[in-house]
Nucleic acid binder design. Structure first.
Length: 476
RNA sequence: CGGGACGUAGCGCAGUUUGGUAGCGCGCAGCGUUCGGGACGCUGAGGUCGCGGGUUCAAAUCCCGCCGUCCCGACCA
């Protein structure tokens, strides 16, 4: 029952939190997971945060199939090359070998652009601003619940545009107005945004934008990506349109995705040695009420009061749950709800009722306080916002405390080893230097800042003139 | 796919060295006492010892093969 501490064994801590908080568990086929109701409720909140913003920025949802003819995949050379090793292929069905094998989608660019070819005739058909919520399969060698599973859930947006500028602006819009906003405002993740280096780019993309967070073990996590795909897919799948100039053009593409990995990001960003800590805006249960009583008389009185409070909190828009299970004692429930990360706990016993108060305990630290029942919902609404801010603040401070500007390659290697975190350092842009850092320290370039600071000095690796600042870190 | 560790009740483990009727803790079920920080007592259910083969009068234990899980590397949202 007891959780390993984060400092003693972070991977074990993570696994135990996921299991004990009943978020998910490994399933029967290697690399797959069952997402349990509480974990799925969190995912649904993530979905809602992202989906609302996708819609608010003018996109519509649709759905493409799970199976893609193998031949389709082959058309974009770089794309196939990137995904071939992790693609699952169906060769038999209906009791016979298939004439043409089907791949289980690892992502849907191919089938979608093959279809867009029929939907796009004229500049008047553009832009196409579509998104789908789907499962995808990538044959992973080393699965970890939520972070890397063979099958995972995500959304993938696929847009088609008339011009390069418009498509790049779309990729940036998603980054800022959809992902960053959802992650910062709802999930409480202090993500940094940037471009990927060529080595880290999505297979088939011209430019990949990314959002990166720093986990409690000082490793970076890619929380979402948005790609400018240029005309690569339009060329591969023959997507042309008649332009305003009366000539034929290839459409410009973007794609962007965020997955169930985000649930892992929330666990590893906010969690502590007692378990999960959920930001109130994400929490399926924001306030849990634990009734306390001895006799039957007290039981009736306390449960009655709890029901009344539930009504009032519900009316104030708070997601509240009364834990009236008979078989568990209060102390057990306190620990369980802390493990599950519920932001605020309300203890309600005879002593409280005698004083017209409730005992309020917040999950993000701080002790317990007695609050008058009068005005309770209003005060709790304020408290929840405060917890939301404080969790974000904690995570942001942790990230800043583990962001360094090493002065030499030796110093960078030492800092990466201990304590770890983001290393901001000048880079010459050479893939050899990037590869050397990876070989020496296992760290990769997580992102290149979007608005490059003026670069002074020389590449931290090779010493030749630097062209930009890179953020290095060990990553998931 | 390479290196290492491990598969015994739902979970965590002992038993394997030295072959001889499968155990402990937690959890689970029933009853009672409890209930403001992970309660206690009594009773009880639950196991093809990962799978297959071999050695033996006899295998959780010894031998061979396979499968799976975890950790470390290469790949990745």
């Amino acid at each position: 029952m007891a959780l390993p501490t984060q400092s003693a064994d972070f991977p074990a801590w993570y696994q135990e939190v996921v299991k004990q908080a009943e978020l998910a568990e490994p399933s029967l086929a290697r690399g797959t997971m069952v997402i349990r109701p509480y974990g799925f409720a969190i995912w649904e909140k993530v979905q809602r945060a992202i989906d609302d913003r996708i819609k608010a920025t003018g996109h519509q949802n649709l759905y493409f199939p799970l199976f893609i003819p193998y031949r389709l995949l082959e058309k974009e050379a770089e794309h196939v090359e990137g995904f071939a090793p992790e693609v699952a292929v169906v060769t038999h069905a209906g009791g016979e070998e298939l004439e043409e094998p089907l791949v289980v989608r690892p992502t849907s660019e191919t089938v979608i652009w093959a279809t867009y070819a029929r939907w796009i005739q004229s500049y008047r058909d553009l832009p196409l601003l579509y998104n789908q919520w789907a499962n995808v399969v990538r044959w992973e060698l080393r699965p970890r619940l939520f972070l890397r599973t063979t099958e995972f859930l995500w959304q993938e947006g696929h847009t088609a545009h008339e011009t390069e500028d418009e498509a790049v602006a779309e990729a940036r819009l998603i980054l800022d107005r959809v992902y960053r906003e959802a992650m910062v405002d709802v999930l409480g993740l202090p993500v940094l945004v940037g471009r990927k280096s060529a080595a880290e780019r999505f297979a088939g993309a011209v430019e990949t934008f990314t959002l990166e967070g720093l986990m409690r073990d000082r490793k970076a996590l890619q929380a979402g990506t948005s790609h400018y795909l240029g005309q690569n897919f339009a060329r591969a799948y023959g997507v042309t349109f008649l332009g305003r100039d009366g000539k034929e053009h290839h459409a410009y593409a973007t794609s962007w995705g965020a997955s169930t990995r985000l649930v892992g990001g929330v666990i590893m960003t906010h969690g502590d040695d007692r378990g999960l800590r959920l930001p109130p805006r994400l929490a399926p249960i924001q306030v849990v009420v634990v009734p306390i009583y001895r006799s039957d008389d007290e039981r009736g009185r306390v449960l009655g009061a709890a029901a009344a409070i539930r009504e009032r909190l519900d009316g104030a828009g708070i997601r509240v749950h009364v834990d009236d299970r008979e078989e568990q004692r209060p102390g057990f429930k306190f620990n369980e709800w802390e493990l599950k990360g519920v932001p605020v706990r309300l203890e309600l016993g005879p002593r409280d009722l005698d004083a017209d108060q409730a005992t309020v305990a917040r999950r993000d630290g701080g002790g317990k306080e007695a609050w008058p029942l009068a005005g309770l919902p209003e005060r709790l609404v304020t408290l929840l916002e405060e917890v939301q801010r404080s969790l974000f603040g904690d995570a942001e401070r942790f990230r800043d405390d583990h962001t360094f500007r090493p002065g030499s390659y030796t110093e960078m290697a030492e800092l990466l080893d201990d304590p770890g975190g983001f290393m901001l350092a000048p880079w010459c842009g050479g893939p050899e230097c990037e590869a050397r850092v990876k070989a020496d320290t296992r760290a990769t370039i997580r992102f290149l800042p979007l608005d490059p600071e003026p670069v002074e000095g020389s590449c931290i690796v090779c010493g030749s003139p630097a062209t930009e600042t890179a953020a290095w870190a060990q990553a998931y």
